[in-house]
């Protein structure tokens, strides 16, 4: 398989705190990788470094074989790596459809027009398709602050996918979403991801979600990767059970939706 993202000895220090220690990760094209770990384990720091939000202290990050160290978030996005956020990052004073239209315009060109209208018929039609694809068409003209958390998360992920990225990083896509909504949300996201043929890496605390959707798990603890492999094997690992998941009963639902 072809490697799409590779980190070599990636380190991040905040003063005396080591948030990431010698992270060596290889993600292959087409994989759906789950990142697990307790709070402060370094999961979000890893995503933030890879997407250019944080500058690593040491190490190397390669995307499609090319170094992206020191690149800005926008350059990394343009290179084909998109992300969503733990707290959905939207434009709160705009409607849901306008959020998508802005993302569509950004995907078309890095230099927005000075005089051509942003809300063109073509963009509105495409945004409506995306609303239907993500099942949020009922919120079309609602301000994003007025829609439920689950729908907000979906809009956030939809915006990340609009630029047709090769890789998508999701930071806790189901956080703040009710238990009932989690499966629907993840099914919707994974369907969209499969249609776009995107490699996915997502941080998740809910082990049921991890077991159900990923083909591989990276377990983080105290800035290090303590296990890497198939979900069943990683979640059954004694060290992972002791340090990350606790002694929960392991279930074998397999990769139901993948």
């Amino acid at each position: 398989m072809t490697c799409i993202l590779e980190t070599r000895s990636l380190n991040k220090e905040f003063g005396a705190v080591i948030a990431a220690k010698d992270l060596n990760v290889q993600i292959n094209k087409g994989e759906v990788v789950g990142v697990i770990g307790s709070n402060g384990a370094g999961k979000t720091t890893f995503i933030n470094m890879v997407t250019g939000y944080l500058k690593p202290t040491r190490g190397e990050i390669l995307f499609n074989g090319k170094s992206i160290m020191g690149h800005s978030p926008r350059a990394i996005t343009r290179a084909g790596m998109a992300r969503s956020f733990q707290v959905a990052q939207l434009f709160p004073e705009m409607t849901v459809i306008d959020n998508l239209i802005v993302a569509l315009a950004a995907a078309e060109s890095a230099r927005p027009s000075f005089l051509s209208p942003l809300r063109s018929d073509a963009r509105i039609a495409r945004a409506e398709e995306i609303l239907r694809e993500f099942g949020v068409e009922n919120y079309r003209d609602s301000l994003v602050t007025a829609v439920p958390q689950g729908a907000r998360k979906l809009v956030d992920i939809a915006m990340a996918l609009i630029g047709n990225p090769q890789m998508l990083l999701l930071d806790e896509p189901t956080s703040g979403v009710s238990v009932d909504e989690k499966t629907d949300l993840m099914d919707t996201v994974m369907n969209a991801v499969r249609q776009h043929g995107v490699t996915v890496l997502f941080v998740e605390h809910d082990m049921d979600v991890v077991e159900r959707y990923v083909s591989r798990v990276l377990a983080f603890y105290s800035g290090e990767i303590i296990a890497d492999g198939e979900p069943a094997a990683v979640l059954a690992d004694q060290q992972v059970r002791d340090l990350v998941t606790g002694h929960r009963p392991t279930t074998k639902q397999g990769n139901g939706a993948s």
């Binding site: 926008r74 990052q89 890095a110 027009s113 209208p117």
Partner: peptide, 28 residues
């Protein structure tokens, strides 16, 4: 009037609302 409805006008408002998201849409 056209500028405020055009790409740059609306996206400048988007910058006011959420600069991080604009950056992660691939814009500066």
């Amino acid at each position: 009037h056209r500028y405020t409805k055009a790409g740059i006008g609306v996206i400048c408002e988007a910058v006011r609302e959420n600069e991080v998201r604009v950056e992660y849409l691939g814009l500066s």
